[in-house]
């Protein structure tokens, strides 16, 4: 999909994606000429349909993790279905660990890895809830 600023006759560029956590999605696009921003809001069913295809509106910011759809979307998965390998990763603050603990066990390993890689790539040594919030917005992670 493309967004066109009709006044300027310019194609708008993808600005950011937000997942408020109620199953809906917002994707913002900006006109490079006049600066106008429009947001496309999708309802839970539309959001889910796109997610089911394993694609992201606005483009991918991080490469797909192995079995991302299965691990993120299967309900009633076995707690210990996957074993994530270690690696050189940052430590976690207490409140961040607490928040991570609320993630269903089935996907927790993957979610932890995504945050850890986000932090590592930016030279962050401790994952805090603030880091998690920043990563969530930047990477567009729903319910993680």
């Amino acid at each position: 999909m493309k967004f066109l600023c009709v006044d300027c006759d310019r194609q708008m560029t993808f600005e950011e994606r937000q997942l408020p956590g109620d199953g809906t999605l917002a994707a913002a696009f900006r006109c490079p000429q006049c600066g106008r921003v429009v947001a496309m809001l999708t309802n839970p069913m539309e959001t889910q349909l796109v997610a089911s295809l394993g694609v992201q509106i606005g483009g991918r910011t991080i490469p797909a993790q192995p079995m991302e759809m299965v691990r993120g979307m299967v309900a009633g998965g076995k707690e210990d279905a996957f074993e994530d390998g270690g690696g050189h990763f940052p430590t976690w603050s207490d409140d961040a660990q607490e928040r991570l603990a609320r993630v269903p066990g089935f996907v927790r390993g993957m979610v932890k890895r995504i945050y850890s890689e986000y932090a590592r790539d930016r030279g962050i040594t401790v994952v805090t809830t603030a880091v998690m919030d920043a990563a969530r917005t930047e990477l567009g992670l729903e319910g993680m």
């Binding site: 199953g23 069913m45 889910q48 299967v74 309900a75 009633g76 998965g77 076995k78 707690e79 279905a81």
Partner: peptide
């Protein structure tokens, strides 16, 4: 291998 014992395949979503 991925589903908890006896659980049918279901997906999170509306």
């Amino acid at each position: 291998q991925l589903l908890a014992d006896g659980r049918p395949l279901a997906f999170r979503g509306p």
